[in-house]
Structures are given as C-alpha cells and as structure tokens.
Amino acid sequence: PEIVKPEHYIKHPLQNRWALWFFKNDKNKTWQANLRLISKFDTVEDFWALYNHIQLCSNLISGCDYSLFKDGIEPMWEDEKNKRGGRWLLTLSKQQRKTDLDRIWLETLLCLIGEAFDEHSDDACGAVVNVRNKGDKIAIWTTDCENRESITYIGRIYKERLGLPPKVVIGYQSHTDTATKSGSTTKNKYVV
C-alpha cells in the first residue's frame, strides 16, 4: 500500500490558538451585544478556511470591525491582558480602502499567526480593523504600554512587513490615553 507522509495529512499547527471576532454597529444594542465570536483556529489550514470564507474588510459596511485575538483575550480594553496595554495604530485615508485596506489587514493577520515579532510575539494580544466612512483604522494591540523594548520591536517589524517607507511614522497609544482623551486625537507614547 502507498504510504502517505505525515506532512500530507497533518495540518500545520500555529504557536497560538486565535479567535476571530466581528462587531456590527447596532445602536439599539449595547457595545458588547454587538460583538460576536466568529470562530477559533490553531492551524495554518484552518486560518485560510476561515479567511477565504468571510467578507473582505473592504466589503463591510461602515461601523463594522474584525478583531483577531489570542484565545482567552477578549477584544476590549477591559480584558486583563489589554487593560495596561496599547496599540500601534494605522489610520487610512478614504482612498486607501480600495488600494490598501485588505492587503494591510491580511499582512497584519499573517504577522500575528506566524509569530513575526520573534521573542516579543508574546506581547502581541491581537489586532483590530475598524471600517469607517471617515477613514478605516488597523491596529496591533500589545499587552503592556510600559514595555518599550517589545513595543518598538513590534512596531519596527510591523512597519517593515507593511513596506512603509522610513519617512512614514506610525504611533503607539496606550488604551488609557485613548479612553480618556478629550479631543479627537490621542498622544503617541512611542513612534517608529
């Protein structure tokens, strides 16, 4: 009989199990009621099965989010792993929804599930994309906003993976600052 090698039937395990969440803005419901867990996966093959099955970000209506977080971390500031953390934030122009949004989100997902941030990958909690008519946002969330070394390492690798030129600066903001801001912008704690 033909012998089938294990690499032909064993799926490729990821370092972490991940959960994909979907948020749809319904003003008649609470924020938490608008947040739904879509599915969890922990292999490369199951990631693609899910990714290929769902809508691209650019097809979502304004007010929707996708969040990908490590299993056990909820995609909200209040979670124990997020409450002292912050995010590397990319703000996209309206034009970039057509040209860049889906590409950047997929690259963000691949960075996370592939553990692209080396020994600092443990600091990455997840990522969020906000689809908004005024401008879409993509962010990588990390667990501790005081962990400068990990945060700047993650930021540099992320910027490199997105192919952003050196003159483009991205900023990291703590969730506390974002939650308590008074104007429309939050001050950057770090930049790369």
């Binding site: 039937y9 064993i10 370092q15 693609w48 099965a49 553990e115 692209a116 990958s121």
Partner: peptide
C-alpha cells in the same frame, strides 16, 4: 521551539484544499 511561519510559507497554503 516557537512555531514561526513567514508570510510566503503562510500564503502558500491559501488555496490548498483542506487535507484528506
């Protein structure tokens, strides 16, 4: 060790049907 995968490796599986 850590299970790390680079983007090309991951992208290589996008259109491979789920195994047997």
């Amino acid at each position: 060790g850590k299970k790390r995968y680079d983007r090309e490796f991951l992208l290589g599986f996008q259109f491979i049907p789920a195994s047997i």
